[in-house]
């Protein structure tokens, strides 16, 4: 009996101060992360307009979302297209840039800084700049450049077929510098001896890249893809700022409607906070499942 009570007391004496020091963080963590999370899970099973008390209605929100909501399906399709294109192109370009500028010479450092700049710039400011670039007026950069080559003025932001490509372009431009820095770090950890050994065995540049660089960069690739995936699924500012010209949040014909803007629209413009919470949890499950698949494919769990 005595040993039973003595053990926690000893533990407390040993770790008590640490626990006390952790308390402020734990308090904030519980109040601003755990509580809203649990609350949103509860709300996803309710009908809640933000003012009146939530009304429990079981799985109704999820049923309607998955089987009875064309706009959600449209948003899901758009988001998948956007995620695949922006992650695919973004990762390839990040790797390309890293291979091109991974040295320690000044030109390489300057180029790396230039490509990294968008990552440290306010995303709102960037989106407003993109809005100017694609402005149909004479001061729109895209149309000005098109005119130099004799091209016709294009109504970039009001042509539904161009919405996703423009969103992908903005995402790749803004994100490839960040991916590049991670890849450069990854490249610098590969010992030169491996390349020497490969060369002695007669491997050419392509074979060295394919057989040495790529496999050893796998943990970095997994990290770049998983974090990119999470970010891309949560795209919001780009749609909200650049394409929200009309009453529908997703731009002309909802061509840029993505999951998070749709969630915002349902929750904060239509007072459907229960439904919006259900969308958030479906999004969480999608991101969770895809990240798991990605980690498995990369077989990088150990390396991470």
């Amino acid at each position: 009996m005595a040993t039973h009570t003595a053990a926690p007391r000893r533990r407390w004496r040993r770790y008590g101060t640490s626990y006390l020091m952790l308390l402020p963080f734990l308090g904030l963590f519980a109040g601003f992360l755990v509580w809203p999370l649990v609350n949103s899970l509860y709300l996803s099973f309710t009908k809640f307009d933000g003012v009146n008390a939530p009304e429990f209605q079981g799985l109704e929100n999820f049923r309607r979302l998955l089987f009875d909501d064309d706009r959600f399906r449209h948003a899901l399709g758009n988001t998948f297209l956007y995620v695949v294109a922006s992650i695919g192109i973004g990762t390839l370009l990040s790797l390309g840039l890293a291979l091109a500028f991974n040295g320690s010479s000044w030109p390489h450092r300057i180029m790396r800084t230039i490509f990294f700049l968008p990552s440290v710039t306010s995303s709102i400011a960037l989106m407003l700049l993109w809005k100017w670039v694609f402005n149909p007026g004479d001061f729109g950069l895209a149309n000005t450049v098109a005119a130099w080559f004799g091209g016709r003025a294009v109504e970039w932001l009001a042509t539904p077929g161009l919405t996703i490509p423009i969103l992908v372009l903005m995402s790749v431009w803004g994100g490839m510098g960040y991916g590049m820095v991670l890849y450069v770090a990854g490249l610098n950890t590969i010992p030169q001896e491996y390349y020497e050994a490969a060369r002695i065995d007669g491997a050419g540049t392509w074979q060295q890249f394919r057989r040495v660089t790529l496999p050893l960069l796998r943990p970095v690739t997994t990290y770049v893809v998983v974090t990119g995936l999470i970010g891309a699924f949560q795209v919001f500012e780009a749609v909200y700022i650049v394409f929200r010209g009309t009453n529908n949040i997703g731009g002309v014909l909802d061509s840029g409607l993505m999951i998070v803007p749709y969630l915002y629209d349902q929750g904060f413009t239509h007072f459907k906070l229960g439904y919006a919470s259900a969308i958030a949890w479906v999004l969480f499950l999608i991101i969770f499942a895809l990240s798991m698949v990605n980690l498995r494919i990369g077989r990088a769990l150990k390396e991470l």
Binding site: N135, P136, G137, F139, E155, W156, L157, A158, G245, V252
Partner: peptide
Amino acid sequence: APTDTVTTPDALGAG
């Protein structure tokens, strides 16, 4: 009439 929206001052300014 353009389908893309330009603000009134910008549109008038651009001719």
